[in-house]
Design a protein around this nucleic acid. Structure first.
Lengths: 221, 221
DNA sequence: AATATAATTTAGGACAACCTAAATATTTTC
DNA sequence: GAAAATATTTAGGTTGTCCTAAATTATATT
């Protein structure tokens, strides 16, 4: 399996997980490739039995395709955590590195890194790491922007794509495991007043969309 | 700079260092590519001012080409040592991994690994690691097969290409830094009787060709 | 020095992954 | 439900890296 195909499969998996339906255009945008090129590649992936593809209807991974996608995602997330722990790479940088390393990691090194880390369950952004058999545990979680005040929540995962966002969250002390209190929401722009430790902060909807939380508990103010 | 070009430049550097003249065929053999394809690529590299190329006359790196080659080699050797030290990867496996990782290592990670290792001077096989400016310190050394008995020598470097050879040398306890005594050479096949610690072993010419030594001291038996 | 052998290059082509522009299908809007 | 807007596919083309077979040049042999 080469880099290009791995990237397509991983992207399809990711869009499916976050957006639902996987369209040609969505893939094209993420991979920064013209839609016409994506169509061609989807036909090839279908021929290889890695996706189910019907013209104009979007695309779905077959179990073979999903298997490969999960392997790449496992690589990605193990590498992210390894870089963070072994080399102290800040959490806003690990994603970009892992994007490249994931494609050159042998099974042998995957195992060694996994052992070195003690078979971790999540990466530095809180995303679950699939096991060797491609089994992934996705605990139920909602976007912070969906939570209604007044509630207490625990951060489960944050989006890893934008380094700036991650540096901002780091400054706010928002990490997986951090407990937050949603104080109130401004209806106009859906910005959110949130208590983080002792601080009260206002987070824009752009930010609250990128934070997934669990253990939502309604509080009576 | 992409993978392919980096591999060509690195290979040219390597052939120059070990064999002297760099021919089309030699490159083709190492890269497992047809000679005709190499000719085409050499023209391209010449257009890019990375090599000096004259038909039928072989090829030489320009300083720009050498710079890139040394960067890749630095990556390669840092990665080899890092894998060996951080993840305990045995020395016969690190080369194959590094062949892939060297092309995806960012400057930032290169620096972090270098710092983690304490700016090492040599890789697990004894090969010198170029510094960030592309300066490489090649101490004078000769192949073990060139040494005349009776001499004491110190192993400087061993070939890293063949995992089987490395496992064999490991079993014999021959590592960079190991001291050896050349007892005698059989003229027929140039096999060599060598003292390693307490043991006396006979090494074939195939093996003694792959071991470079320094500090050759004649002994009067 | 002529010839045989080996190395190298030229010519022409394959293939993967991308592109743009034009055509067609689907979805949205009125 | 027709028209407009959007999404998708088709057609044709480009680029990079490789290939084989044939032609050429260099080297070795007698």
């Amino acid at each position: 399996m080469n880099r290009v195909i791995e990237d397509y499969l991983k992207t399809i998996y990711d869009i499916h997980a976050t957006e639902g339906k996987v369209t040609t255009t969505a893939i094209a945008q993420r991979l920064k490739i013209a839609p016409a090129s994506v169509t061609g590649m989807l036909k090839k992936l279908a021929r290889m039995n890695l996706v189910q593809y019907e013209k104009y209807q979007g695309v779905r991974l077959t179990s073979a395709g999903e298997q490969i996608a999960l392997e790449v995602i496992r690589h990605h997330r193990l590498i992210e955590l390894f870089l963070a722990q072994a080399l102290n790479v800040p959490w806003d940088q690990v994603h970009e590195e892992a994007e490249k390393w994931e494609h050159v990691l042998s099974e042998e090194m995957e195992d060694r890194i996994d052992r070195w880390l003690g078979s971790p369950k999540t990466d530095p952004h809180g995303a679950p790491i699939p096991d060797k058999n491609g089994h992934i545990e996705e605990p139920p979680k909602v976007r912070l922007c969906e939570v209604v005040p007044v509630s207490r929540v625990v951060v489960a995962e944050v989006s890893d794509h934008d380094p700036e966002l991650l540096r901002y969250l780091g400054k706010l002390n928002v990490y997986p495991g951090t407990s937050l209190e949603v104080v109130q929401v401004e209806p106009f722009d859906r910005s959110m007043e949130v208590r983080i430790g002792e601080q009260i902060r206002v987070l824009s909807a752009l930010v609250t969309r990128c934070i997934w939380v669990t253990d939502v508990q309604a509080l009576d103010a």
